[in-house]
Design a protein around this nucleic acid. Structure first.
Lengths: 237, 237
DNA sequence: ACCTGAACACCGTTCAAGT
DNA sequence: ACCTGAACACCGTTCAAGT
């Protein structure tokens, strides 16, 4: 802080010791959302978190919407970087889909509060489907499949099926983690409203099964199915 | 309006000729969101839309969050009602899944602006998975499958796979419809940013295929796959 | 007792006034 | 020329003052 160059007054509450920068603003927003959830993210609160005047943020980002897009971009690019390193690696297309799926899942679980944003922000183009919502990502995906012998049409069909699969599974998985937690504290972690299950005998009887978490196994199983689906559409169409 | 009974002063801008009611408030909110999108929905604007004092809404709904939950509930219950009528109908479990899937898709396409809310509002319990997010719905689903010979565990697994499938496909389908449209008008409906596709030859080359819409066929194909998946998990496990 | 609307504590963002 | 912070046009919600 008192390093002689920055004339800023108060120290930031968080990790931002020096000059404000677009990257620093966006990174702070990701941290803030990870910590407190989307609902708490406010331009003014982010300013306080960074230890700067709230208006200073507007010098690096045009407004709140652009900031949210940038937050999504950070998470999306994280996975992109992981996958780019493997681009040249040998391997079949199904091994590629497998790696990509688990990379995206890793990012979603690392930022469960951000992922719903990845899923629902209006994409820049209608064919940019969440969560693979950057042109670079789509390019990489399609190129890999084309390189594996897919026709253009087949590669696009695989892109569509793959994104649907990822979105459904990951959105449900992160939403089960307890995203938000902002309203009043839940009554008790055990029996969540068992009392009002009076008229629902089947649900009541399966309460134990419904509460068990098999996310990882179900994800893998659905992924296997998806790969089979893509393989079938490849030979079929 | 001037039907002699209601003493209200100004006529509502929309269809609300008589006494304010919880149902009327929620219904107006659904209409408003269908027309203007989630971002525009405000307690004050909803009051204006109903032609009442904004504070009057609070007499029928505890707050904004509760209103949003109620909006989701309306869409969810629409489908529920359709399916309940068919509960006693004969038919195999896969015909049931088929009907239910298309019923939910119909609701999503009827309210594309509301569906992202159905998908992302934190559920009342972690095992209430969007878009089948009411206990009554889960009860009906599980009961039907149990009735078709599924074990409890198998029925729950089918419930999980089915909700993931629906959520991924429908969220992507409605988001492609052009949900929002609130920011500045798009430049042109044709070539969406073809200019910046310089470094992305594969995407550029597949622009036509990427723009084509095969939602209905893809939904059906994925649904067939899901049914096969469930059938396999039933004989397998 | 019920309802209204002024008031409060916030927002995102603009822009004039300072340096 | 650059940056700050007062000010504007909104929010959701409370609550005292009216009927």
């Amino acid at each position: 802080m008192a390093d002689g160059l920055t004339g800023a007054g108060r120290p930031g509450t968080a990790a931002s010791p020096r000059q404000l920068t677009r990257g620093r603003v966006v990174q702070a927003a990701v941290e803030f959302v990870d910590k407190h959830g989307m609902r708490e993210l406010t331009m003014r609160r982010l300013g306080a978190y960074l230890g700067v005047d709230p208006m200073a943020i507007y010098r690096h980002v045009p407004g709140r919407d652009a900031l949210l897009d940038a937050v999504v971009g950070v998470v999306v690019d994280d996975v992109l970087e992981v996958m780019r390193r493997e681009e040249a690696e040998p391997g079949t297309w199904d091994a590629y889909l497998e790696r990509l799926a688990h990379a995206v899942r890793g990012a979603a679980l690392a930022h469960p509060q951000v992922f719903p944003l990845v899923a629902t922000r209006p994409p820049a183009a209608p064919w940019l489907r969440p969560p693979l919502r950057s042109v670079r990502w789509v390019e990489l995906f399609l190129r890999t499949l084309r390189g594996a012998g897919f026709s253009g049409r087949q590669a696009v069909a695989a892109y569509r099926a793959f994104t649907s699969f990822l979105l459904g599974h990951l959105l449900l998985e992160v939403s089960a983690i307890g995203v938000d937690t902002s309203p009043v504290d839940e009554p008790a972690p055990t029996d969540p409203g068992v009392g009002d299950l009076a008229g629902f005998p089947t649900v009541a009887g399966l309460q134990a099964e419904l509460t068990e978490d098999h996310s990882a196994a179900e994800f893998q199983r659905a992924l296997d199915d998806l790969v089979a689906h893509v393989a079938a559409m490849r030979t079929g169409a």
